[in-house]
């Protein structure tokens, strides 16, 4: 998966140093490194993201997506992954949230649900999610929910997938993992 830069050179040097000094700890490195973290490539923005078809409705191109469902009594917000489905969930049905609310479907319920969801997203390392929810009424329940999620620190837009530039490409975008603060 990940190849060592100047792999053979470094391996040789390691071998040499082993022959000369015996007191130093000896750490082997194989030239190919495998990172098993299934979320790694997505976080580095190079993981596969379904492209959909050009005539598809928007909302099919995402790694994580924000969804909001309201039933007659409760409202549920989920973050779903394109392969794994639902991964983070918050609902006014939960006793932990319901306990502190006055009603489970009013504006303050939506706002607080947004806050709780944003908190859980940050705790589980999901900072950017795709969102195709369009609030039916400006400044209504849904709009305030989205605002609460954004205020909680979750960005409601996902970066595009980085695709490697081919040798004949004119423009070479910067590699996202080489940018460090």
């Amino acid at each position: 998966m990940f190849n060592l830069r100047n792999g053979s050179k470094l391996a040789n040097n390691l071998l040499k140093s082993r022959q000369t000094s015996t007191s130093a700890p000896q750490n082997d490195i194989s030239p190919v490194f495998t990172n098993r973290n299934p979320r790694n490539l997505e976080k580095l923005r190079i993981g596969y993201k379904p492209d959909g078809y050009h005539v598809d409705n928007p909302g099919k191109r995402y790694w994580h997506k924000l969804e909001l469902k309201s039933s007659g009594r409760y409202v549920t917000a989920t973050i779903s992954h394109f392969q794994n489905g639902e991964v983070v969930k918050a609902s006014t049905l939960e006793w932990a949230i319901k306990k502190l609310l006055y009603r489970t479907l009013d504006t303050s319920a939506y706002v607080n649900l947004g806050r709780v969801l944003a908190d859980r997203c940050l705790q589980s390392g999901i900072i950017e999610v795709d969102c195709t929810i369009e609030p039916p009424i400006p400044n209504g329940k849904v709009a305030q929910f989205l605002k609460a999620v954004e205020d909680g620190g979750v960005v409601l837009k996902e970066p595009p997938q980085y695709k490697p530039s081919r040798p004949w490409d004119q423009f070479r975008p910067e590699k996202p993992w080489e940018v460090t603060e």
């Binding site: 006793w95 932990a96 949230i97 306990k99 502190l100 609310l101 006055y102 009603r103 009013d106 504006t107 303050s108 706002v111 607080n112 806050r115 709780v116 908190d119 305030q144």
Partner: peptide, 17 residues
């Protein structure tokens, strides 16, 4: 608070429960 849309629940309390 709820009717005035100002009810903000305590997130730590939510987490504990």
């Amino acid at each position: 608070l709820a009717r005035e849309k100002k009810l903000l629940i305590d997130l730590d309390e939510v987490k504990k429960e």
